[in-house]
Design a protein around this nucleic acid. Structure first.
Length: 507
RNA sequence: GUCCCCUUCGUCUAGAGGCCUAGGACAACUCCCUUUCACGGAGUAGACACGAGUUCGAAUCUCGUAGGGGACGCCA
């Protein structure tokens, strides 16, 4: 169990995505841990949108990310609502672009107290400085000639017009070490000269990440900041700001990053990186959560398959692993398959149906038919989209389920007995069709037919089953015939047998 | 380049100085079940990055080395 923060009883976590692109699986994991930790401690989980990058932020992206978060089920008490995009909660607004006045106020305060200053350096001058530092092998830090200007002089220069300065934090006077205890890494120490005077407000007045982040976390009373490891060194700047602003810092925990198979930071060139893609491919939200939870955390019971409520119950900060983890899709698939199989059939059907519909397939309405089909296919599915190829031969939407004789069938078709078997299969089906008005064969009828084929053709084993399966599916491998065949209309079976016969005759 | 972080089977991890002949899971392989495919079951193989130290004893503590990652933005 995690001890409460000494100065704050209420645990409050936040997830603060920037709406540029899709929700990344790494972001999802951060959100998950924040959610789990808050839930487990009867705390609050806040969603804040960090949209201070005017160029790259889009409302579309925000909407998308919030919708993916909702799909994952990480409900937050406060923040931007996924459906209405309206704020919810007492510490709003929750979009940084709507908090500009707040940031300005604190910037003015720092300016007045001499902890920050106006800087008139141009992009070109900064680039030149960096190039020089590079050549000299010095740290790439900005040294502003304006750092010693008085606020009055700077304000006068601004009043004269023609300039739009940035506001920089004055770290150059600081000369000390900043220490903090990271929730996942332990004690971390940074020397203050690790960073140069950094920007608080851009020349347009738009604040910068490190500045907003500190103000918002403090104002929103966040107790625990769990975020990705790439922010570890930002913590130094933020600690300086907490001090300058006289805010009490939260507890920080820096989560290891997620790597691709080549041990580089997971990115698009590794394949799917967004929650959205996994959603579209037919992964279950509980399974994705289960899998990403295990990337850097382990169940104290050694459990591999955990439901959301088990995650909430078992999660703890002290089991967070500091090393980077490789995203292994094979294991994700396995986890998904486990969750899939545990689902009640009615629910499973509701989940696969959209995939079938999107693929243009149509299945019988009959509940019993659906039940039998799921029974048959459930163990062959790892992701929901696997249902498409499994169900395609059962579609009643015309075009005979897209039936074709598959390449895999070549060997079976080359056997001398195959023609005989398929021909007999067709004959038996036609007889059965003429005897009963039911569209489908019963399991018993199929058994009888199969037996007739067996004795009339004097074949058994592979020579019996494989040709029949080719006549049903177009390939020799697949589901068990005695359950599969009664799921397909007799007329369709007859048609397929004819197609296969035709195929053999044409060579 | 500078600073910070990290390092156990191919992958995710367990491991808090003796319970470690290093455990589990995915993947791989073998066998069993099975008319096929899958499911399921049983097994096999496979790791403490390296080097010093501390200690009676080190995967576990310390220091170095190497490798990987991150930061050094008017991105977040």
């Amino acid at each position: 169990m995690n001890p409460p923060n000494k100065s704050q009883l209420k645990i409050r976590t936040r997830f603060a995505p920037s709406p540029t692109g899709y929700l990344h699986v790494g972001g999802a994991r951060t959100a998950l841990y924040c959610y789990l930790f808050a839930r487990q401690n009867a705390g609050e989980f806040v969603l804040r949108v960090e949209d201070t990058d005017e160029q790259r932020s889009t409302e579309d992206s925000m909407r998308q990310q919030l919708s993916d978060l909702k799909w994952l089920g990480y409900a937050y008490q406060e923040g931007v609502d996924a459906d209405t995009l309206n704020d919810r909660g007492p510490y709003g607004p929750y979009r940084q672009s709507q908090r500009l006045a707040i940031y300005r106020e604190y910037a003015d305060r720092l300016l007045k107290e001499g902890k920050a200053y106006y800087c008139f350096l141009s992009d070109e001058e900064i680039a030149e400085q960096r190039a020089q530092a590079e050549r000299a092998g010095r740290p790439h830090q900005v040294v502003s000639p304006y750092r010693n200007w008085s606020l009055k002089d700077a304000e006068k220069k601004i009043a004269d017009g023609g300039v739009s300065p940035t506001v920089r934090f004055r770290v150059s006077d600081l000369n000390r070490e900043y220490k903090f205890r990271d929730l996942v890494r332990g004690d971390v120490t940074f020397p203050s000269d690790m960073v140069g005077d950094f920007v608080l407000l851009r020349s347009g007045g738009m604040p910068v990440y490190n500045f907003c982040c500190v103000i918002d976390d403090a104002l929103m009373k966040i107790s625990h900041v769990l975020r990705a490891e790439e922010h570890l060194s930002n913590t130094l700047r933020q600690l300086m700001l907490y001090e300058a602003l006289d805010f009490e810092p939260p507890q920080f925990g820096h989560l290891s990053i997620i790597l691709g198979p080549d041990r580089q930071k997971l990115s698009k060139r590794h394949g799917a990186t967004s929650v959205h893609e996994y959603r579209e491919r037919g992964y279950l939200p509980e399974a994705l959560s289960n899998f990403i939870a295990l990337l850097g955390w382990s169940s104290p019971k050694g459990q591999e398959i955990l439901s959301m409520s088990e995650l909430i119950e078992q999660f703890s900060l002290d089991r967070l692993h500091p090393a980077a983890a490789v995203f292994d899709e094979a294991k994700l698939k396995w986890v998904n398959a486990q969750h899939l199989r545990a689902l009640p059939h009615s629910e499973l059907w509701n989940l696969i149906e959209p995939f079938l519909t999107r693929a243009g397939l149509q299945m019988p309405e009959d509940a019993n038919w659906r039940e039998r089909s799921l029974q048959l296919f459930k163990t062959s599915m790892e992701v929901l989209s696997d249902a498409v190829e499994l169900y395609r031969p059962l579609s009643i939407s015309g075009a005979n389920g897209g039936f074709t004789v598959h390449d895999e069938a070549r060997e079976t078709l080359s056997w001398p007995s195959t023609v005989k078997v398929v021909e007999e299969w067709r004959k038996q089906l036609e007889t059965a069709a003429s005897k009963s008005t039911s569209a489908y064969l019963s399991e018993e009828e199929f058994a009888t037919i199969q037996n007739n084929v067996k004795s009339n053709c004097a074949v058994k084993g592979k020579e019996l089953f494989m040709p029949i399966r080719v006549a049903v599916l177009g390939k020799p491998h697949g589901a068990e015939l005695k359950i599969l065949v009664p799921l397909i209309e007799k007329s369709i079976l007859i048609e397929r047998a004819k197609i296969v016969l035709d195929h053999i005759l044409r060579g």
